[in-house]
Write a protein that binds this DNA or RNA. Structure first.
Lengths: 351, 351
DNA sequence: GTGAAAGCGCTAACAT
DNA sequence: ATGTTAGCGCTTTCAC
């Protein structure tokens, strides 16, 4: 579909009466080229409308200048904020971004990994589906020396060490549960997605630790695993009805489901937090404005994206020492009304 | 950073004792190659772990198999759903996606356009910032025959015709305002972002049309332009206090600001909808669960992304007839509690 | 400090 | 139905 002939370094060379190699060097500020030659080359390139052909350059250098991103959902409040952070850093460092979403399907994730590989991304950022068990599809990346950085939904990768960017989900789960206990809850339900996923199992472990710490008997019946979408509230409610002793507190592993529950409870005439206290996870926008406002764990999405991208870019730029690290970002319990059984003074509304 | 030598079509050719071109043709199912030869080639490619070098292929074909996407924000509920739709279609058709966000900055938008150009995307999908006036940065795309499709935030592009995917914002603005009037509102405020942008100015025009249709005097003081973010509610509220006659209805050009207003009004002891009725725009998740639930205009994000991507891909695949079209997707007024002054029966909760 | 030349891996026009 | 050949535009080694 292209029409006009493109300007190449040969065209510039011809006009300036120098060789194409000098032009190539000049354009990339090679130290052996005289300053004024570089100037002449760049000026001419500009005035001729030269645009470097990245395919040729990539082919020659065997580097794509592109970072691949695979995540479960683009249309998720939290995840899109991570992408936003990734985009920001990548853009600053001159990397392009190829993005694809797995939509929580392991098959699609595998397909996406294959696409990223054949697109020859320089590095890969990935947040796994809830159901991902094996990571061997990533083998060829690491065997070839293409760095992979996991973020948020991560997994141990036997045989390979990869950098990770996460929060301390166990501690966060502890904090959330501990808060409910301090508010007087004695029978706390944990509403989760697939416990295969680190984010949900670690939060679960934190939940159990907090119970144990307060010498509260852990009742496995109170762990309810389901998809944490908008229908989650209704499912949890019907689950509640099946239980002999109704819980007096709920720790939901994400805000979307927590909000959906609050909605259900209110519909059913239950009072939040008096009948049942609720803590969510993510601090999405909605948690601030729902009524009662939702106590939740704040979790820095944009920063997570930025750190993940920086970590990868660092590996890409310094090819010498590959330092594998796990970056743990701070989370924070944001106390709002949905959990305040003891009516304390709320924090400043700026939270 | 790559280590092992890659398998090329020459390696396959040598093993099978045929020529590289036959391998190349076989791999892309060229009709002139015998079925069984194709089989042998593909089997061998698979067993040797062949991976096509897209740089070389792209260089040769002068096609990147990549679609560029530029939009204001990735971390916006609506926009990320559009991206989700784009990703879905692109992925189905074997296109990669390069995504960048302008963050509502015209400068960044221009820089992104330049990057997309030098990345040699096959086509571009773009939703403009609120402040974009001129489109000449896109000239080189169109002069070179690279198709550009606008979605959502679009603009007339003098000298070039491009396909667009939008909703009828004027009609939607009319519907929203008309609904408020039917509910008995007589002094309706329009809260908007920059009226340079089609989405906001068209909604504004619809607002005016509805007023006119009901013979209500249009008071320019009641159009309040500001950034439609979470702080918008507070700004609108202080604006309200400056007005002689307080409005009894608000049409906000997005849900985020509508929700923020409701929050403010409630804080200030005003009742929604009785003191002031509110209609938003976008039907984001939160509008369903806020109290009172928010009347809004539904607006199909994922579909918009899918249609935009399909439109572009169609142009990319059929290079003969370039049919320029504007696709207008359906919007829908979703009536909820925030606007119901006449307590009518609400629609089914499935809304 | 600059030039000549080879080659990255693929595709397609032109042969046969 | 398959092979030969040239070349996409760039980078880089080696030469001077």
């Amino acid at each position: 579909m292209a029409s006009r002939k493109e300007v190449t370094i040969y065209d510039i060379a011809k006009v300036l009466n120098i060789s194409a190699s000098t032009v190539s060097r000049g354009l990339s500020n090679h130290p052996a080229i005289r300053k004024d030659t570089i100037r002449r080359i760049k000026d001419m390139a500009l005035s001729m409308g030269y645009q470097q052909n990245t395919f040729a350059s990539n082919l020659r250098k065997n580097r794509s200048n592109t970072i691949g991103v695979i995540l479960p959902r683009l249309d998720s409040s939290f995840q899109s904020s991570v992408v936003s952070g990734i985009e920001k850093k990548a853009n600053q460092s001159g990397f392009n971004l190829i993005i694809s979403q797995s939509r929580e399907s392991v098959e699609k994730e595998i397909a996406n990994i294959a696409t990223m590989y054949s697109s020859r991304v320089d590095g890969l950022l990935i947040s796994l589906t809830c159901d991902t068990c094996k990571l061997d599809h990533l083998d060829k990346f690491l065997k070839k020396g293409i760095p992979v950085v996991f973020f948020d939904r991560v997994k141990e990768y036997p045989g390979f060490h990869c950098s990770k960017v996460v929060i301390d989900n166990e501690k966060a789960g502890y904090d959330a549960t501990n808060h409910l206990i301090e508010q007087g809850c004695e029978r706390i339900m944990y509403v989760s997605d697939n416990l295969l996923s680190n984010v949900y199992s670690d939060r679960h472990q934190g939940y159990i630790n907090a119970l144990k710490h307060h010498k509260i008997q852990h009742d496995p019946e109170l762990t309810f695993v389901n998809k944490l979408d908008e229908e989650s509230g209704a499912r949890t409610f019907s689950r509640l009805l099946q239980l002999k002793n109704r819980p007096d507190g709920i720790f939901a592993a994400n805000d979307v489901s927590a909000v959906a529950m609050i909605y259900q409870f209110k519909q059913a005439g239950l009072s939040v937090p008096d009948d049942i206290a609720v803590v969510g996870f993510n601090n999405i926008h909605i948690s601030r404005v729902i009524e009662p406002s939702l106590t939740t764990i704040h979790y820095p999405g944009v920063e997570m994206g930025e750190v993940a991208a920086s970590t990868l870019i660092e590996m890409l730029n310094n090819d010498e020492p590959v330092i594998i690290k796990t970056v743990v970002l701070e989370h924070k319990l944001i106390v709002r009304k949905s959990s305040l059984k003891n009516k304390q003074i709320l924090r400043a509304p700026s939270d």
